[in-house]
Nucleic acid binder design. Structure first.
Lengths: 193, 193
DNA sequence: AGACGATACGGAACCGTGTTCCGTTTGGCA
DNA sequence: TGCCAAACGGAACACGGTTCCGTATCGTCT
């Protein structure tokens, strides 16, 4: 609930505005599925049956649109952290499971991992949202695992997540590259000593 | 020596063509340093004092230009592999040293790692050249280390290099993210068991 | 119901890139 | 010196993001 239409989502807005926003979210989701998160603005507008101006009115930057489309899944991922920590046998297992979840999310969204790492200013907000929401969750898992002596204590949640995100870039384009495997190796490298 | 002007570099070509090619290489190197490998074509042309058409005549794709600019360093990296294997105490140390070399190369070239991973068709050839030249070198190091029981035997050189390359994306943009550290962790994850 | 103002819409126009194409220039040979 | 293939330059085109403003619509107030 960090980036939003500031709580005024369904309230004092014209009916057509609300309709269009929903149409845009649906269209964007479809376009992202087909072309990745860099789907042309005009395509998304066409799919939604609106003009390009309407996109920019509802979502001033591309990041806003991407965040809106994926918010539910990011939230679900964030909420899974504490649950896993409570349910798993060891913090290390919980951490591994949670990273699996995160990786699964990233690799199934073409171009999302790339966008997270893009130096394009438009994606700054995307980067920020993902990090704000997920790094604290990761940090709790990591701290618990470190406290249990299961991972080396000198790794920050931020760099771990960035590393995992980077490893997911290009996943799915190339059958010889399995991001999940590489992430497993990275996680294995977290063991102490 | 994989991608080249086919051995005819200095021979039966007009003097101005040779001069312009060198000017372009110098200009591109400077532009890449300043703006990364995505430096605008017109900038490079202006720096070299030529028209944009001249760039495309000498280097039909951006990848050709990038490859030409960095060929020496890629070659040096490739040649360092066997040397390290001969000089180091264990194959595992040689592998680690060689990866350090590769990482150092990538992180000091702004945008190179990104370009290697770009899904842009223009960079296809870049990707291919790097892989053709370096994967075999990495494979020898990896095989030696695996034979010595120092790394798990089920990791392919290709995926390792892709993983390392991905981890280098965005290095230098963010002081909180140290690609070298992450690569070290990844390499640590290669240990057996 | 009718009118009116605020809200929202559409898409033409603009800008910055990469890329192509063709009329012009130039190097090198006869 | 004259010729022409080789090479050049940059205008023109393609394409995607972004802005802007005249127009249409909603919802309210009388």
């Amino acid at each position: 609930m960090a980036v939003d239409e500031s709580g005024v989502s369904g309230a004092r807005r014209r009916a057509d505005a609300r309709r269009n926003e929903q149409a845009l979210l649906d269209a964007a989701a479809a376009a992202f599925l087909a072309c990745g998160v860099n789907a042309p603005v005009r395509d998304i507008a066409a799919r939604a049956g609106v003009g390009v101006g309407t996109i920019y009115r509802h979502f001033p930057t591309r990041a806003d649109l991407v965040v809106a489309v994926y918010r539910h899944q990011v939230e679900a991922c964030a909420e899974a952290g504490p649950t896993l920590l409570a349910d798993c046998d060891t913090p290390c297992v919980a951490l591994a499971r949670w990273i699996d979840l995160f990786v699964e999310f990233l690799v199934t969204k073409h171009g999302l991992a790339e966008a997270l790492r893009s130096d394009d200013a438009a994606f700054e907000a995307l980067h920020a949202y993902f990090l704000d929401r997920l790094v604290p969750v990761c940090a709790r898992l990591l701290d618990a695992a470190a406290a249990a002596g299961e991972v080396r204590p000198d790794v920050a949640a931020y760099e771990l997540m960035r590393g995992v995100g980077n490893l997911c870039i290009g996943a799915g384009h190339d059958p010889r590259y399995d991001a999940r495997r590489l992430v497993d190796i990275l996680v294995a490298g977290l063991r102490p000593q």
